[in-house]
Amino acid sequence: MMSGSGDPAGLDATTLNCHELGLSFGGHKVLNGFSVTFAGAGITAVVGPNGAGKTTLFNVITGFIQPDSGECFLGDKQLTGRRPHSIARLGIGRTFQDVRFIARLSVIDNLLLASNAVSGPTGIGLRAFLSEKRIREEHSDRCAEVLETIGLTQKAGDTASTLSFGQQKLLSIGCCLMNPRKYYLLDEPFAGVHPELVVTITETLKKMSKSSEVIFIEHDFEIIEKIAERVVAIHQGHLIVDGPPDQVFDTDSVLEAFVG
């Protein structure tokens, strides 16, 4: 794990480096010279009170919002200025705070939609025009593996809109999992989920972190202490503390930011 800011030169290809990010909405500074570096392994929790800039940070990294100042790099590749699909193809997958998937498609079709994303150099390669049979054959093993991981094997043929909220969250994580990514940015994966499914999501995140870094936004300190190896605390667009959970949660500035 690394923290702080720095020049992207010399960082290895899996390092995600955000440097001096600044962003304002209507005069309100959401990110205010925010810098952080991720090493590409383990599980990191991003914490902070509402409006601290956590989701905005994810949106900036994944290209959905361009910062007013500062840059993000994945290794030596600049992310800032790239379109979201291009950043996803560089190896940064994400989920959203409002659970997103294609409601009218089946669970398996949602996974297939996600799995094809890595094909072709332009983001819409010739493989998008392959026969459906061939696509299903090529991805059947991976789909089965992901369905088992997220515990939705029995629901594969169901229309996604019929799933429970927790299952929908798992599906959105499963869609992320269909492609090998260097980073998975998960926005509140545990929020509003039944305790039974919390266990499934926890196990899924652990599996994901074996070959990638999982960065997730969370408000529940108990969950964070169970699974996160590192905590990045944000307040008013600043990085206030960065370190192991026990250390971060004992910090006065974190307690002050959360409790007031």
Binding site: T62, F64, H85, A88, R100, A114, T122, I124, C175
Partner: peptide, 12 residues
């Protein structure tokens, strides 16, 4: 259904 989500998956 959802252009933002589709783009987030890596589709141009």
């Amino acid at each position: 259904e959802d252009e933002v989500y589709t783009e987030s998956l890596g589709w141009n």
